[in-house]
């Protein structure tokens, strides 16, 4: 391969899954809540809107709910996501997997890949607001708690993901 330090192979998926499950369990036991990701972005969005147009937050129940009293750095999910950045970075650094790059399919240009990434991100943002959570807060956390809405979310999300992946498979394979 390249002259760089060879990166190590990823962990066994079942080992990583049990590890992730124990982190989720620790969160339930220590904090009385599960994992999340979209809530941190919602807090950041509420903070941004509040900074530019405070009136827009006051009339909006969703933004009000996500505008923490002590600012975003005292928000549980924001601090958790900062931890995710650190944990992911440290894990990749120790395994020699840090590298600046744009990962894309064999038949996609960088411009196409970033366009799809942007569009996909925006769509996920819309979906996560409507569903009140994403793969972390709904699928993983709600799934483990046997929440009905979480399993509806899992069904809807994976069904559509398979359809869209089928339609766009040429750019990846």
């Amino acid at each position: 391969m390249s002259a760089r330090v060879a990166s190590r192979a990823y962990a066994d998926p079942y080992v990583a899954g049990v590890g992730l499950g124990l982190v989720l369990l620790a969160s339930f036991v220590l904090a009385g809540r599960g994992l999340g990701a979209s809530g941190a972005f919602a807090a950041a969005a509420a903070t941004s809107v509040h900074a530019v147009a405070p009136g827009a937050v006051t009339g909006n129940a969703y933004l009000t709910e996500h505008l923490g009293a002590g600012g975003p750095l005292r928000d549980w999910l924001v601090v958790e996501i900062l931890g995710v950045l650190v944990g992911g970075f440290v894990s990749a650094a120790l395994a020699g997997r840090l590298a600046l790059r744009v990962e894309r399919g064999a038949h996609a240009t960088i411009r196409q890949r970033l366009g799809a990434a942007l569009a996909g991100g925006v769509l996920m943002g819309g979906g996560a607001v409507l569903a009140r959570g994403c793969t972390s807060g709904q699928a993983l956390t709600g799934g483990a708690l046997l929440s009905v809405g979480a399993w509806l979310f899992i069904g809807g999300a994976f069904a559509m993901a398979y359809l869209v992946a089928l339609a766009t498979r040429r750019s990846w394979t």
Partner: peptide, 15 residues
Amino acid sequence: QIVGGMVFGAGMALA
């Protein structure tokens, strides 16, 4: 949550 899940899933496959 069904509709939000579907929009989210479409985005996930693009992203």
